[in-house]
Amino acid sequence: MPHGEPLLAIRGLNVEFGLPARPVRAVADADLTLAPGEILGIAGESGSGKTTLCAAVMRTLPRTARVSGRVEFAGKELLSLPEREMARLRGRDLAMVLQNPMTSLDPLYTIGNQLEEVLRERRRGGGAGRLGSAVEVLRRVHLTAPELRLRQYPHQLSGGMRQRVLVGMATAAAPRLLIADEPTTALDASIQDEILILFRELRESAGTAVVIVTHDLSAIRRLSDRVVIMYAGRIVEEGPTVEVFRAPRHPYTQALLASLPRIEEEEVVLQPIPGQVPDLARLPPGCAFAARCPAAIPLCREERPRERTVGERHRVFCWRAGEGAA
């Protein structure tokens, strides 16, 4: 991947909820860059902050959230951008696909109605050479019988078809960045891969960078160039996908990969991570994973680990990572 000007640069991003006296930090000190056309996977369990991080970039967080830090997208600082300009970016340069294809479409309007509305909106934004007709949009996402689909209502389409429609809508104007939050979670395995393939095609045909947020590690491994692992609101490891999956350096990443079912001598082996995800309102002073970590030393409970570079663009936040003991 190119090392030139990043498309997206997140610096020191913090998102807090709750009373200022006892804040819950959903995202803490996040630093992240994304190159144009790059595919980045963000993995982590529920409550790890991955969805909040994306919502902060899209500026779709609830009003009660307190956000600080910088989010630079194509040279603009998004957090301080007037809402009108932000609205102009959304959908055209910055697009999002959500988890639930069942509720993201209006059941009272045909697919054609809804798609036309999106296209009208994008055309008004101007400078969208790729838009084309509604049928073309559906064809790009390989929906069968697109002319028929335009006349149908959402309930007449399967979950996979609906997700294709939503990906088509989100990417009609060839955005520079697509954020997909658990885009395949509600779908069957056979359909999941087809949706992931769409993202890759989008990068190839329109140079779109993709951030895919998911707990499906297999999807990240096969789709993304780089991967970020989050735990309790913090990035704990980031690196090239191949490297992180081959040789994870953070004990949490290691435990997460080990918890996937695998087959050893005819038996399916499962290795749960013991304990619970910590309460974000009562985080320990040191590393949030220390209580569940097999490699923890007293230092881990006292002081938050600093960033360590362990390879080319591969960094990890763990006191033990440098020792090869973890």
Binding site: S158, A189, I191, D193, R222, L223
Partner: peptide
């Protein structure tokens, strides 16, 4: 498909029910 080790797109089950 479930083996998940094949590269994306190498194994496909196209179409719908």
């Amino acid at each position: 498909l479930a083996a998940g080790d094949a590269p994306l797109g190498a194994v496909r089950l196209q179409g719908e029910l």
